[in-house]
Amino acid sequence: MESHSTSGGSPIVTITGCVIVAIRDDLDDRSVMVLQDHLVDEIARTGATGVIIDISSLEIVDTFAGRMLGAMAEMSKMLNARTIVVGMRPAVAMTLVELGMTLQGVETALNADRAMALIKAGR
C-alpha cells in the first residue's frame, strides 16, 4: 500500500507500513505544527507501525524543532508506531549537544535504509 500527501513542502509517503517524512528546507514554527498534524493523521489512516523522519536537508535544528521531533516520536508511540530520526548532519548534532538537547526519547539512525531495516527487524 502506498500513499502521498505533502505538508509545507515536506512529502509524507507510506511504504509497507512505514511512514516516511523528508523534512525539506527551513520550516517556520507554524509549518512544523502542520507537519505534526499530517503525520499523526497519516499514521492513524494507514495503521503504520514505523515512522522515519529524514532531516538530512536541515541545516538548523533549534530547541523548538528539537522539541517537535520529540513530540512527534511520543505521539507516534501512542499510536503504536516507532519513530526513527535519520540523516542528522554533523554540525546539527554538535549544535544540539551544545544546546543541551540530546533528544533522549528519540531513536536515531544514519539513513532511511538503516532505519527501515531496524523497524523490519523489530530491534
Binding site: 526513527i84 542528522m88 554533523p90 544540539l96 536515531t108 544514519l110 539513513n111
Partner: peptide
C-alpha cells in the same frame, strides 16, 4: 560525553 551524545544523534 558530548561526543558520545552527538554520535548517537547521528544514528550511530
Amino acid at each position: 560525553l558530548k561526543t558520545a551524545a552527538a554520535v548517537r544523534l547521528m544514528g550511530a
